[in-house]
């Protein structure tokens, strides 16, 4: 925990203070990490989001049918995706795919003395390895969430259009009418907070690996479990603040 807090402080230093002391972060590694963390996760995100959209629409159809309120299916799909399912499920995918990969990569670097070699070359590992990953995650998780929301809504549309008697225009209009911009923004805020949690927990796990290949495995597993728990708890807290307090 102490290590985790120190890492957070150190990241904040390298992002907000060091650039004003002439140590500006390099842009190229950030893009490399964005491809790795974000772009390569896009197919998995699309598949997940589509399945979730389809599932939501089918469940909604079943429940709302008895009330004769099938007209509200788009509302339900849209709001659930934007506010909760989009940010949470896409964070789950990114934890499983990118968070674990970052923890394992940094962990392997740690046990093969690469981190120590960087320090001895007077290159700060947080600046050189962690900061580009933090930026990449902060940009890519919200981007993937928006992308996933689109695909999820497409999944809902597929059910409504082909299994129920909606037409495309009716679905789109209904869905757009139901959502407010705040629904989108709240999801985006969540996803930025999740991004910070995921990447800091993964980097912290990687940098604190001890004891060979086995240690890398344990740390990677621990980082996935901790990220999931932290993310879900944080989601409950944020939902409480955004939709339940006022």
């Amino acid at each position: 925990m102490k290590n985790y807090l120190l890492l957070n402080l150190s990241i904040l230093y390298w992002i907000f203070i060091a650039p004003f002391k002439g140590q500006f972060f390099k842009i190229a590694p950030i893009f490399r990490q964005m491809v790795f963390i974000g772009v390569r996760a896009a197919p998995m995100v699309a598949l997940t989001a589509f399945s979730v959209g389809v599932t939501l629409a089918m469940q909604a159809a079943h429940s709302l049918e008895s009330l004769g309120a099938q007209i509200y299916i788009p509302d339900l799909v849209m709001l659930t995706l934007l506010r909760e399912m989009g940010p949470v499920l896409i964070a789950v995918i990114v934890i499983g795919r990118s968070g674990s990969a970052v923890a394992a990569e940094l962990g392997t670097m740690k046990v093969s003395e690469e981190i120590e070699a960087l320090e001895v070359m007077a290159i700060n590992p947080v600046q050189y390895l962690v900061v580009p990953r933090v930026f990449a995650m902060l940009v890519m998780l919200p981007a993937l969430t928006i992308f996933g929301n689109y695909i999820g809504i497409l999944g809902g549309w597929a059910v409504c259009r082909y299994a129920l008697d909606f037409n495309t225009a009716g679905y789109v209009l209904r869905a757009l009418e139901s959502a407010e911009t705040w629904d989108l923004y709240s999801g985006m805020i969540k996803s930025v907070v999740f991004a910070w949690l995921i990447i800091t927990i993964a980097c912290n796990a990687g940098l604190n690996v001890e004891g060979g290949a086995e240690g890398v495995g344990q740390s990677t597993t621990a980082s996935v479990v901790e990220s999931l728990l932290a993310m879900l708890v944080m989601n409950a807290i944020l939902t409480g603040i955004f939709f339940f307090s006022a």
């Binding site: 990569e105 392997t108 670097m109 093969s112 003395e113 690469e114 120590e116 070699a117 960087l118 320090e119 001895v120 070359m121 007077a122 700060n124």
Partner: peptide, 24 residues
Amino acid sequence: SEREIERVRLRFGMLFQSGALLAS
């Protein structure tokens, strides 16, 4: 401190037992 030691580290080189090359 970490900052001061970086200045000293610029003046020496270190070869690790495994080489410790960055694999990426």
